[in-house]
Design a protein around this nucleic acid. Structure first.
Lengths: 113, 113
DNA sequence: GAGCAGTGCTTGATATATTTAGCACCACTC
DNA sequence: GAGTGGTGCTAAATATATCAAGCACTGCTC
């Protein structure tokens, strides 16, 4: 519910895309994208979130959650549980998972200014 | 995509609830409910859909789907685990980063099901 | 340095979501 | 049969989402 705008901006910058490039790929106007990123839009349409999720390569549900929309139950347990060591706790991860983790880590690190 | 309004109306009538009773239970105005049921609203907020799903006892995802919103797709290629040394690829990660990555991985894995 | 294409951003216009206030129509009770 | 209180529904008002147009700024090329 807080700052999903900053999140979107970080995603875009992590991929080095301009607002107009995202507009081309998602059919969401650059003007609107700018407003999204600066926190001027409270409840964007799930349809647009879905388009952006595709362009940025992040799960649609994650964007929904960031915006503050309810997310289907099976995915509710995103947040908390006790974990310890990375390798031991993760076990083996798939190629796809690794790609996503790397993307996400890049996002985490770009987040701090 | 067509007439989710009729569906909502059928749900309400199946429970023998009046518009105002649903308003009481969901905090969605009876006026708006009426418009929803008569097909005058194209894209209701997921938040309201979630409220109604609760009142009517149907899965939130179903309402989302009926309205025409994208619903989370089960991950397509869970594909073969190509082993990798995660740490060597990620480099050194901080404790905070690790926590976030673990949460995110949990999210990824909960997503498909 | 004029021209041009790209950048993020704002503004005004239009569409749509949602609510408040109120209608007209039923019951039922006194 | 006037007076309640319930029903679905609508109109007007407000809020918000979204886009088209355009601004001011940059960097590049001739």
């Amino acid at each position: 519910m807080d700052n999903y705008g900053e999140y979107l901006k970080a995603l875009r910058e992590a991929k080095s895309l301009s607002l107009r490039e995202v507009e081309r790929r998602s059919s969401v106007s650059n003007a609107y994208l700018s407003q999204l990123e600066s926190g001027k839009i409270k409840q964007p349409s799930p349809i647009n979130l879905h388009k952006l999720a595709k362009v940025y390569g992040v799960p649609y549900e994650l964007l929904m959650e960031k915006v503050g929309y309810p997310v289907p139950e099976p995915m509710k347990g995103v947040s908390n549980e006790k974990e310890s060591k990375l390798e031991t706790r993760l076990g083996r991860i798939t190629q796809d998972e690794e790609v996503e983790l790397l993307d996400y880590l890049k996002f985490i690190r770009n987040r701090r200014k």
